[in-house]
Design a protein around this nucleic acid. Structure first.
Lengths: 213, 213
DNA sequence: AGAATAACCATATGGTCATATTGTTATGAT
DNA sequence: ATCATAACAATATGACCATATGGTTATTCT
């Protein structure tokens, strides 16, 4: 009598499907044009099912942002891991990670657009702001740690303020990313690359003496 | 019979009044909550009058953004002019200008919030994007010119890529500004100051040999 | 004085949207 | 087999909003 269980569904993959609908819609019509009905259409399901999985539009957007940021983080980590095989220098690993945050390819452009469009919403929405802040902190801490590793291995001078450098490097990268969203010029793109490379070179000034990481 | 002229109004001051309504509303309720009716209420006039001066909400927002950006530009110029009296060093003039773009005081915070909230809208709106892009270019060119002045006077080494430095300095500043909107911590604020000062110091490395400007 | 018209206002209109409501369907445990 | 219930769908509801419409008021030129 107690404990009769009806059919089940894979909640996580459903939510992934629905948030993918939000992403597709946002990329084609702008984040401001995202509606529940439009999301349902994009995901190929009914409005009611979206409501079944999200109790409000806000929670839907929050989940979409969370998944977006996780994806970006994973991609940054993957790029760093990849660079780790090719270069011993921490400078290059970190640079590769930061380049992942710039809209230099169509796919990256999509992600960057979404990230900054959500940042706009987050200015008016504490839940989204919390996601953004936590994401930025995690990225910053990764950079900071890379700088510290650089200090241990001799690439970075011991007087360097690693926290300051972490915050500056992230701010520079995100400022460049925002700019490239508006200025689609090729030259702007290469200047952005150069700006990051220059920055890395000015922090990582010495040769790497021992194993990194 | 021809040429009868009825009462006149100061269009510019009316528009200033109306856009001030937009600003007030955006600051108290978020830019996303700005409506024509709300704007009229905030400005103390009727909906119809707002319509009389703006043929669409979009043109209202565009004018609001234009006035906002002009105001910021004027403030940056004022800060530079002020610093010019105190310091001969271009480094300090430029630094003072860039600090105006950070949300370090309540008034600056309001302006920075509006600027970045509008940037979010601009991602979906070509008219607003044009304003943003032009504003950024003007700021960047100001910085670039300051760096060139620094090269003439010996503060900056001749190998410096002034355009690159201009873009990097602006991106850093705006990235920091965005970050401070989310992280209201005192320490974050002082790190942002330090990050800009450090950056300036790394570009302006020599003593100033002759007159600046 | 009064005609012409900009300045200004109140309300109507039509559409959109988030959410509520009221279903139907399928499936797992008994 | 069938019941309980999650999964899913269609439509209703009510609020909000940009804009349209149809005014009134005030002022300037003749």
């Amino acid at each position: 009598m107690i404990g009769v269980v009806p059919r089940t569904a894979d909640h996580d993959s459903r939510r992934a499907q629905i948030t993918a609908g939000v992403r597709d819609l946002a990329l084609s019509s702008g984040l401001g044009a995202v509606t529940i009905a439009g999301t349902a259409r994009a995901a190929g399901i009914s409005v009611g099912l979206v409501q079944h999985y999200y109790d409000s539009k806000e929670s839907l957007l929050a989940d979409t942002l969370g998944r977006l940021l996780s994806g970006i983080e994973a991609r940054v980590d993957r790029a760093i891991a990849l660079a780790e095989r090719d270069h011993a220098r921490i400078e290059h690993m970190l640079g590769a990670g930061l380049l992942e945050l710039l809209p230099l390819s169509p796919a990256h452009r999509d992600e960057t657009y979404l990230r900054h469009a959500f940042a706009g919403l987050a200015l008016d929405n504490p839940t989204l702001a919390e996601h953004q802040l936590a994401f930025d902190r995690r990225l910053r801490d990764r950079i900071t740690q890379a700088v510290r590793n650089g200090m241990e291995c001799g690439e970075v001078t011991p007087e360097t303020d690693s926290l300051l450098e972490g915050e500056a490097a992230l701010a520079l990268t995100q400022g460049l990313a925002m700019r490239l969203l508006f200025d689609r010029d090729d030259s702007a793109r290469s200047r952005a690359r150069a700006a990051i490379a220059t920055r890395m070179a000015s922090v990582f000034v010495g040769p790497c003496a021992r194993e990194s990481r």
